[in-house]
């Protein structure tokens, strides 16, 4: 076909070249094609694949996100200690370097796969997919994916998880939801950690942290806990057990679950998967 003389224009495709048609001629002799596809659709496809993997094995998958040092691994240790008898837990650990976190989890008798991302500041669906090859999902009730410590990038990548959990530790300051709206908007629950430090760091107001969450139009519960002092852990475990049950109800109906904000975006923008 030739783009010079118009011999490629047929009765069947003429409408595409009309003004506003999909292939209307543009300035440089090219043809414009309307795509309307999410830039991360390749990642999202793999995430959907991961999600169906989880669903086939009825594994409830949680993406655990926070800044470095907010206490993700400590919360996982406490969770394993409290629920290890009741549920079978597995963990995927994302870090730039070291196997330290996976070793801490394995020391508690729980299978853990470490992903070292090198310089990558987030996990993506492909990395998680590769890690799944090293993990026996049969019989697992809950899979925690501990993302790279970072309040920016992890929020943009769907991994196939069913729920997002975001930690905010007291030393970081109560304005983090306002400073990192993308991350905190994605949270299905926010855990304010290290609340045993509140008497010392009295400029942190849990009320202000909640107000910042509301300003993000988020109805996510905000839990206050301290792993060190053993405070508030039961509210976290209750949330977890309730969400697991919620997931299992969906799972029995052959349905899946997604983090709260993702379907909203997909629906509103009419994006192709």
């Amino acid at each position: 076909m030739c783009d010079t003389c118009g011999c490629n224009v047929t009765h069947g495709n003429r409408h595409l070249l009309a003004p506003g048609g999909r292939l209307e001629k543009t300035g440089q002799g090219g043809e414009a094609v309307t795509v309307l596809r999410n830039l991360l659709s390749e990642n999202d496809r793999t995430a959907a694949h991961n999600r169906s993997h989880f669903d086939r094995h009825a594994v409830f998958a949680i993406n655990l996100m926070s800044s470095p040092g907010a206490g993700k691994t400590a919360l996982l240790e406490a969770t394993v200690d409290a629920l290890g008898e009741r549920f079978r837990i597995a963990v995927i650990e994302g870090d730039l370097e070291t196997e330290n976190d996976a070793q801490r989890i394995r020391a508690r008798g729980v299978p853990a796969v470490q992903i070292t991302t090198g310089s990558a500041c987030h996990l993506d669906a492909h990395m998680v997919h590769n890690a799944l090859h090293q993990l026996e999902l049969d019989g697992i009730d809950i899979l925690f994916i501990e993302n790279v410590g970072n309040l920016v990038c992890p929020a943009s990548f769907d991994l196939g998880q069913h729920r997002n959990v975001t930690l905010l530790s007291v030393p970081e300051g109560d304005d983090k939801p306002a400073k990192y709206p993308v991350m905190f908007r994605a949270a299905d629950v926010v855990a304010l950690t290290k609340v045993d430090l509140l008497p010392v760091l009295d400029d942190f107001s849990t009320e202000r942290a909640r107000d910042h969450m509301h300003a993000l139009a988020s109805a996510a519960p905000v839990l206050e806990l301290s792993v060190r002092a053993g405070d508030g852990i039961s509210a976290w475990l209750d949330w977890l057990a309730a969400e697991l049950e919620h997931y299992r109800q969906h799972s029995r109906r052959g349905e899946t679950l997604r983090p709260r904000i993702q379907p909203e975006g997909l629906r509103l923008h009419g994006l192709k998967a």
Partner: peptide, 24 residues
């Protein structure tokens, strides 16, 4: 009120692409 849903602002979208086609 804080109970809102997002209409736009979280897009990350390839909208349109202009190609030069192979000439047969």
């Amino acid at each position: 009120d804080w109970r809102t849903e997002l209409l736009s602002g979280d897009e990350l979208m390839l909208v349109q692409v202009e190609f030069v086609r192979e000439q047969a």
